[in-house]
Amino acid sequence: MSWVRIIYCFKRTFLFFLLLAPLSLSAQELPKERKLKAAYLLNFTKYLTWPEGKINDRETAFRLCVNSDPSFFAFMQALVVKYNQSNAERKIALSHVNNATHCHMAYLQTPVEPFLPQITRAVIVLESLDVQQSNSAIRFYSQANKVRFEFDLAQLANVQVKASSELLKLARIAGK
């Protein structure tokens, strides 16, 4: 079969798939900055240590709660799927803050009621310094086109969570 024939066939079919293009583009791409923040959350779970018994009492899953728009939640969900594939011994269970019974870590794009029982013992991570939320332990910010984060060590101590020295080396410490 000649290459002319092959090109003809592909051209004919290309028109069909053009019709599908608007459908596939309807899902908005998450900005890279927010994708990086989602990936940071996965890494935080590796470099933070929760007190003995807080995670393994009744289940092995680490509870990550998110209060965000659907596009961030969907991306976070995809990251967790991938993470759980290669970390079978300690899986992450993702849920919306409002749907969770308890959270080990809560990521907030927008503020929530500060005394929600499910987050009172959680490490609260804020999407940016603009989010007005009390009791936050980690806050993202941007500097020189890179995602950075600051730690509130007092708040971390309040929830009895320890950060590794490797993580602290990269963090800005609030109040210093």
Partner: peptide
Amino acid sequence: AQSTPSEFAELSLHELFETSIAD
């Protein structure tokens, strides 16, 4: 271009720290 979730999930802490938002 930007990436897929699985590739972001594999980034280490130090790789994230070096990655530019507008790179």
